[in-house]
Design a protein around this nucleic acid. Structure first.
Lengths: 200, 200
DNA sequence: AGATATCATTGACCTAAATCAATAATCATC
DNA sequence: GATGATTATTGATTTAGGTCAATGATATCT
């Protein structure tokens, strides 16, 4: 993990990601940038380690990551993060608990990072930042609710089809067993699902 | 649905629920109360209707409700709401879309209600309210993530055991087929799960 | 109390996906 | 390009839960 100084920070990317949630005025933008650190994570390296400290919110600007939870020795892919997006293990981060997942770079990654403490300072200093924090949390809710619905109502085949529809390049970029794990099925099952879909 | 005026509002209950998220000062408390409406919903009646307008956030202070989504004619219980708690179909509410669920009283219910517009006004008027909104959203994330984990990792039997452990009275208060539906299994399966657990 | 819904249980059978095991295909490295 | 490791496929078998159908048990209502 390589950290650099302020000169490496691309203000426009940061602003444009935050602007997907609400208009960001110059004052808030300066506040955000002033707390930003730049980090590079090489392919295969961890950004966050399962069971370790969980005090960083990342904004992935380049690359691909996955969060993984190891339970009883098997590896479960919980989320893929495809730039540009925020990267964190949200629940542990908010509760100040050790991370439940590792977050690992599947390709060389570049991130901007804010510490938990700096984030709280931003919230205290600026009403606008409080709002953007709320809007981001609300979007996370929508994503997670989507996940519940998918596990509740969809078959593995349907989940696979939806994933390839919304994220077609993923299948090229990561090994199939990680996709299987993300879908909640075994690699053998995913292989059969794919065989069946091809036959049709 | 019966709406009454300000005199029916129990300030202490409202404050105590908000205080589970953060300390509420008098100014914010007054703001919240000034926008509050009181509503009673009789057993069997709807608070929110699937496909209908979704512009109310409820605080259930008495009673039990469930949110139900009808898909292809079958009825899926998405959540049980046991007072005191907030009641809404969050995603549609936030996105200003029709409600995905109905929310129905399983017992006679009493709620305090805020309209979407009043909530936005509160957010604009007060930094503190923005923060409490964020903190509530963050708690919702934790709940929903829990749901995903349960559907992903737990068997139906485990989900049933967890539900009865965390909410033992529920089984007395609602028909079993609703519990089955909440757990994501058929009534027949839940009946067998219970039979097996009793035998052990 | 008797009649009628509604709800819960039980049985027989079916299906999606898991498990275990063996190959086959890829990929990385010397 | 050969060698060993990782990843993907295919087959045989098992299991959790679904589906369909019948029977019991509870409520509710006149």
């Amino acid at each position: 993990m390589i950290s650099n100084d302020q000169r490496d920070i691309d203000h426009r990317i940061i602003r444009s990601v935050y602007e997907t949630f609400m208009p960001i005025n110059d004052e808030l933008h300066e506040l955000i940038v002033s707390k930003t650190t730049y980090v590079e994570i090489a392919k295969g390296q961890e950004f966050i380690q399962q069971g370790g400290p969980n005090d960083q919110l990342g904004l992935l600007v380049d690359g691909l990551m996955r969060s993984v939870e190891i339970i009883d020795g098997d590896d479960h892919t919980m989320i893929f993060f495809d730039a540009p997006c925020f990267v964190t293990e949200y629940v542990g981060f908010l509760r100040r608990e050790p991370s439940r997942h590792s977050i690992i770079a599947l390709e060389d990654c570049r991130l901007y990072v804010w510490s938990y403490d700096d984030l709280q300072k931003m919230y205290s200093l600026s009403k606008e930042s409080e709002r953007v924090g709320r809007l981001i949390a609300e979007c996370v809710i929508a994503d997670v609710v989507n996940d519940v619905r998918s596990f509740r109502f969809d078959t593995a085949t349907e989940r696979y089809e939806k994933l390839t529809a919304t994220f077609p390049k993923l299948v090229q970029r990561v090994p199939q067993y990680m996709i299987a794990s993300y879908l909640g099925v075994t690699p053998e099952s995913l292989s059969r699902i794919r065989a069946k879909l091809i036959k049709e």
